[in-house]
């Protein structure tokens, strides 16, 4: 079974978000990058578990420059077998998706794993685009995935509930909380990961239909208004009459 896990790089959650160049570019100065948590904790681990149960190979796929090697090594130390890096700055979702789809056309995969979304752009776009480029089913926001014989059963999150679906490979899946439990690599697996192959390939170009023209940080809250606990009726009145939220 060929399992592909698409991983992305994002600023860690506590990073200060600033922009330079009059709001034209993200200021990456002093920002620490991590593997997108949905990709690391859920997509990658579930793919590794499926391989452990059924045999096969887990390929880690990343579109990014050489500075991403550290997250690729991490993915290999968690248990990916090999990695492919497309050597390019990921300019938009469509560009990233195109690289993934082209790779899968040349190297057919049974299951293509994505994270639910990246925690920087929160787009949830790439998985859906790749699925259409490859004309395969897309199990979105999955919190469970089991294989029995040739059939996969998954649970996907919907508003206020879950839906159980049955699907055949090849398909794409985006991974949400519940799909797997985070794995922490140990010293041995970190050492072993250094010997795993990382292929670096050049990108296929795409046209750009969407461009970010301006960034800004939202206005700060004007400050909290504190109330004594014996004054709840005043707070309730404000929520009703001034804020009009109840």
């Amino acid at each position: 079974m060929n399992l592909l896990v698409c991983i992305s790089k994002t600023p860690e959650t506590t990073a200060k978000i600033n922009f330079t160049d009059g709001g034209k570019a993200f200021d990456s100065d002093g920002v620490n990058y991590i593997m997108n948590p949905y990709d690391e904790w859920y997509a990658l681990v579930r793919a590794i578990e499926l391989k452990e149960e059924n045999g096969g190979e887990v390929t880690v796929f990343h579109v990014g420059e050489a500075s991403s090697d550290i997250i690729i090594r991490k993915a290999l130390s968690i248990g990916g077998d090999k990695a492919v890096r497309v050597n390019a700055n990921p300019k938009d979702s469509f560009f990233v998706a195109k690289q993934i789809a082209e790779f899968c056309k040349a190297n057919p995969q049974d299951v293509i794993f994505f994270g639910k979304e990246t925690i920087d752009y929160n787009g949830a776009e790439v998985g859906s685009i790749v699925s259409e480029m490859l004309d395969i089913p897309f199990v979105s926001f999955a919190s469970k995935l089991e294989k029995s014989g040739d059939v996969f059963t998954a649970e996907r999150d919907i508003e206020g509930g879950v839906q159980r679906v049955q699907v055949n490979a090849p398909f794409a899946i985006s991974s949400a909380k519940g799909l797997a439990e985070q794995r922490i690599p140990n010293m041995k697996s970190i050492m072993m990961s250094k010997r795993k192959p990382v292929d670096v390939v050049e990108p296929v170009d795409t046209d750009t239909k969407v461009e970010i023209v301006h960034y800004e940080t939202p206005p700060e809250k004007s400050g909290v208004k504190l109330f004594e606990m014996d004054d709840m009726s005043t707070l309730v009145k404000i929520l009703r009459d001034e804020e009009k939220v109840i």
Binding site: P11, T13, I17, F19, I119, D120, Y121, N122, T208, K209, V210, E211, I212, V213, H214, Y215, E216, T217, P218
Partner: peptide, 14 residues
């Protein structure tokens, strides 16, 4: 919004 609400961005669709 981006970065879980820590930033806003304007996207031009061409």
């Amino acid at each position: 919004s981006l970065f879980s609400g820590k930033a806003l961005a304007d996207y031009e669709v061409k």
